[in-house]
C-alpha cells in the first residue's frame, strides 16, 4: 500500500488534490481512499489530507502516520509543522518552492517544483492565494510514477473544478519542470 500525506493551507486545494489523486489511481484500477484532517476550517490555516493507494481493498481507517510520500503545498509550513514526521526511510518529500532540492537540509529525498509560479502563469487563484493543487499532482506523477500524467489529466477533466484546461496545462508544465 502506498500512503501519501499532503500539507497545505486552507484554500490551496490540498483536500481536492488528495481526492483527485485517488481518482487518478482509481482510473488505473487501484483501490483508493482519500480524506482530510480538518483543524480549524478557515482560509490560511494548516490543513493535512491523505491518500491511500492499494492493489486490494483498503480496510484501515486511521490517519496516515508513516507515509511513503509527503507533499508540501506551502513551503512556509516546513518551519511550523514537522512535515517529515513518520516519512518512510526511502520516502520522498515534494515541496512547492522556487528553491532547489539541495537548498533543503532534510535527510530524505527531496523533489521541488515552483507550483506557485505555474499556477499564476495559468491564472489559477490570485497572487495572495494561488491554487497549486493540480500543479503539484503533475509533480507527483513525475516523481513517483505511481500514477500517470494521463490519469491525473483525466481526473481533472472529470472533476467539478473550474478552469479545467488551465489546470491541465499547469499539471503538464509541473510534470516537465519538477527537479529531484
Amino acid at each position: 500500500m502506498i500512503e501519501i500525506r499532503f500539507h497545505g493551507r486552507g484554500g490551496q486545494g490540498a483536500v481536492v488534490a488528495s481526492n483527485m489523486l485517488a481518482d487518478a489511481a482509481f482510473r488505473e484500477g487501484k483501490h483508493v481512499q482519500a480524506f482530510p484532517f480538518f483543524g480549524v476550517e478557515r482560509r490560511g490555516a494548516p490543513v493535512s489530507s491523505f491518500t491511500r493507494i492499494n492493489d486490494t481493498p483498503i480496510k484501515i481507517r486511521s490517519q496516515v502516520y508513516t507515509p511513503d510520500y509527503v507533499i508540501v503545498l506551502d513551503s512556509t509550513l516546513i518551519d511550523i509543522t514537522d512535515v517529515t514526521s513518520g516519512l518512510k526511510k526511502n520516502g520522498i518529500i515534494i515541496i512547492n518552492t522556487d528553491k532547489k532540492p539541495s537548498d533543503f537540509n532534510l535527510s530524505f529525498k527531496v523533489a521541488t517544483i515552483d507550483a506557485t509560479s505555474i499556477a499564476l502563469d495559468n491564472k489559477l487563484g490570485s497572487k495572495m492565494a494561488p491554487i497549486v493543487n493540480t500543479s503539484i499532482l503533475g509533480a507527483f506523477a513525475k516523481v513517483s510514477g505511481i500514477v500517470s500524467l494521463e490519469s491525473i489529466i483525466l481526473a481533472i477533466k472529470e472533476s467539478d473544478i473550474s478552469k479545467k484546461e488551465d489546470n491541465i496545462k499547469a499539471a503538464e508544465m509541473a510534470y516537465q519542470k519538477t527537479v529531484m
Partner: peptide, 10 residues
C-alpha cells in the same frame, strides 16, 4: 464523521 462523511472511496 470524517472517517466516512469526508472520505472518498470507490
Amino acid at each position: 464523521a470524517f472517517y466516512l462523511s469526508h472520505t472518498s472511496e470507490i
